[in-house]
Simulated scan of single mutants.
Amino acid sequence: MPELVIDLADLADPRVLRLLEDHLADMHATSPAESVHALDVGGLADPTVTFWAVSDGEGAGAAVLGCVALKELSPVHGELKSMRADAAARGRGLGRRLLEHVLDEARARGYARVSLETGTEPFFAPARSLYEKAGFSVCPPFGSYVLDPNSVFYTLEL
């Protein structure tokens, strides 16, 4: 198996754009529009957001297998965003690797905690399981989020 590489993502890369289009399509197919909080390309380009992709090698020939973003909410609080493994690459531990990468970055930045929002639908059960195994606990809405029966909020003290 080729070595996995996690690096800053190029929002103009067609491989990354396809992954993001798939991500947004799944979010809109799974949750009501008012409950979709996934970032589009414009949201990921915000200077408070750092966005990475994981690929099966380096260069233009490598397949982009997943992505993740970290949004700075404050100097001590980050939000996990846009975590996605390509459907064909699921079950290979990519989510765990991406989550470890973001948490390492959050610690390096000096964040005291990382929070996230995800869906309550069965589609999101693997993500919720991953976050809970990593030590995240359910919390009230944070930032600009409000209570929503289609959302669950998690936080992890670092």
Rank of each mutant, 00 (worst) to 15 (best):
G78I: 05
R96A: 13
F142E: 00
K133Q: 14
S115K: 02
G78S: 11
G95S: 12
L98V: 05
R92H: 14
A125G: 07
H101V: 11
G143L: 12
V64D: 04
V152P: 02
R84S: 06
H101F: 14
G78T: 06
S129E: 11
G78M: 10
F142V: 04
A89M: 03
F124M: 09
T48K: 11
F153A: 00
F124T: 06
S115H: 09
G61F: 01
V114A: 10
A134Q: 13
R107P: 06
R84H: 09
E79I: 04
A106E: 00
T120H: 00
A85S: 15
E58K: 07
A125E: 13
F142R: 04
R92Y: 04
P47F: 07
T120A: 05
A62W: 04
P141V: 09
K71R: 15
S137T: 15
A112Q: 15
V102R: 00
F51P: 05
R84Q: 09
V68Q: 02
A112I: 00
A62K: 08
A125T: 09
A53L: 05
V114R: 13
A89W: 02
P47N: 09
L103E: 14
E100C: 07
V64E: 01
G59T: 12
D86V: 12
A112T: 14
Y131D: 06
E58A: 13
A89F: 01
H77E: 13
S129Q: 12
A88C: 07
R92M: 09
L103M: 15
A106G: 04
V54A: 12
S74N: 02
G91C: 10
P141C: 04
G59H: 01
A63E: 10
Y131L: 03
E58L: 06
Y145K: 05
K71T: 10
E121P: 03
S82V: 03
P149E: 09
L116F: 12
A53P: 02
